[in-house]
Amino acid sequence: MALADAVLAREQALLDRVLATLRAHPATGAALRSARHAHQAHVRLLRGAVPAPTSATASAAPSGTASGTSTGTPTPTATRTPAPRAQRVAVPAHVPAALAAVAGAEQRLAAAERGAGLHARSGPFARLLAGMAASAAQQSAHLGTAAREGRR
């Protein structure tokens, strides 16, 4: 499923960007909470649909969950950092610019997922991708507003 692989890679990249922004600017926690939640949910769901590529690190427990119980996976630790192969994300030095950067990335993701939904062969998968695109569009609007309010 090349289409699903590409969607998963894009969702993971955006989640990495959100996590990097949260690390660089803890003050963005409230604004980015729903984006982190949404992309974690998308990555989890897509990983369930896409056969795991190779590594065990790819299935590490989702970071940030409050659960202290082990899920039984042999992963040594569930760290808050993204997978080692994650690309490094440059986070702007100021909070409004950092939020605007995530908003822009959400907008590009929404456009990519709309295109993927159009080309999906199965109707239900197209619907799922359209829902993910709509989620990214919401985040783009939400974070754009937060960035503007931060500049005031």
Partner: peptide, 9 residues
């Protein structure tokens, strides 16, 4: 409304 992971689903 608040942002959701799956609008419409």
């Amino acid at each position: 409304g608040a942002p959701e992971p799956y609008p419409g689903l």
